[in-house]
Design a protein around this nucleic acid. Structure first.
Lengths: 153, 153
DNA sequence: TTGATTTAGTTTCAATTGTAACCATTCCGC
DNA sequence: GCGGAATGGTTACAATTGAAACTAAATCAA
């Protein structure tokens, strides 16, 4: 006997996550773009390269949760803007190491405080305990979502 | 004196929200599409109409966090699939009331259990208390994100 | 070697999505 | 009523995004 369950969209977790994420992302995207002409993919690439200079593109892909096409495009616009330098690996000439140029690093140094400030404002109403819980919960949910995977059909 | 702060992408809340939301959404989208040929916008429209038959398109827009173009497109494919019925409001002939057809309602009745089951699986590792906290936190964060708004530049 | 297979990254093409212009209708001031 | 202004919804066009094909280089098996 199939139980007839009700579903309210406003309470449905995937919907809520999507709305929250979109709201946050578009606010940030607007700020990045207005101030630095930077898209979110480009910002992500810069962020991982600032922390790990010289990564090859595939590693950037892995660390940004973007696909390789998106990374390729972000990289090429960053190159064109002179914010990134690319050097072919001598050992394996298919691979390219990526590093921020000084100009790129300067831009990044300006973006970071803005990003962190937004984040601080966002979580400001949460208590310290709630932030810790949120951190843990996000970790669990992401792990779980990956585990359930696209195969959950 | 500007404090030089570090930022790790993996710990940055907007990034984490985005990755989680994308992971969850694509799993669900794949399932809906494979089983019912349904996109997420269509699913959202069906969900609000199942709960509130006869809404006009603008109300659906408000309740789905989608823009009116997205609603219009979802509605037209649902109409074409015979899952939705549309009637012009006699009082105001610009407005159209939307209702699921019996066929649409049948599809919806099949989708709901799948959606709820996915949600249950997703939050299964969380304790009851954590779920309550998550619920509260999401509410706060969304309110805050809306408050900070795209104007936060 | 050398030729088939795999891998890194780019390009191309199609589908999705967003923005703006657009009708049809209604509302409002006169 | 009558002529703007506003509103509901659709359409058209541009920009993003994703999937698949492709190029170049490296690996591996014979």
């Amino acid at each position: 006997m199939t139980r007839r369950e009700k579903l309210h969209l406003e309470g449905f977790l995937p919907y809520r996550l999507s709305v929250l994420s979109n709201t946050v992302s578009s606010a940030i995207a607007a700020a990045y773009f207005a101030n630095f002409g930077l898209s979110i993919p480009e910002w992500r690439v810069m962020a991982v390269l600032a922390a790990n200079p010289g990564l090859v593109a595939a590693e950037v892909t892995a660390r940004t949760a973007m696909d390789k096409v998106a990374v390729s495009r972000a990289v090429s616009t960053l190159l064109a803007a002179g914010r990134l330098r690319r050097t072919t690996a001598p050992a394996d000439r298919r691979r390219t190491h990526l590093t921020l140029t000084p100009a790129g690093a300067r831009v990044y140094a300006q973006v970071v405080p803005m990003a962190l400030e937004y984040e601080r404002h966002l979580v400001a109403p949460l208590s310290r305990a709630e932030r810790a819980t949120l951190d843990r919960i996000l970790r669990v949910l992401l792990g779980r979502a990956v585990e359930l995977g696209p195969a959950h059909v």
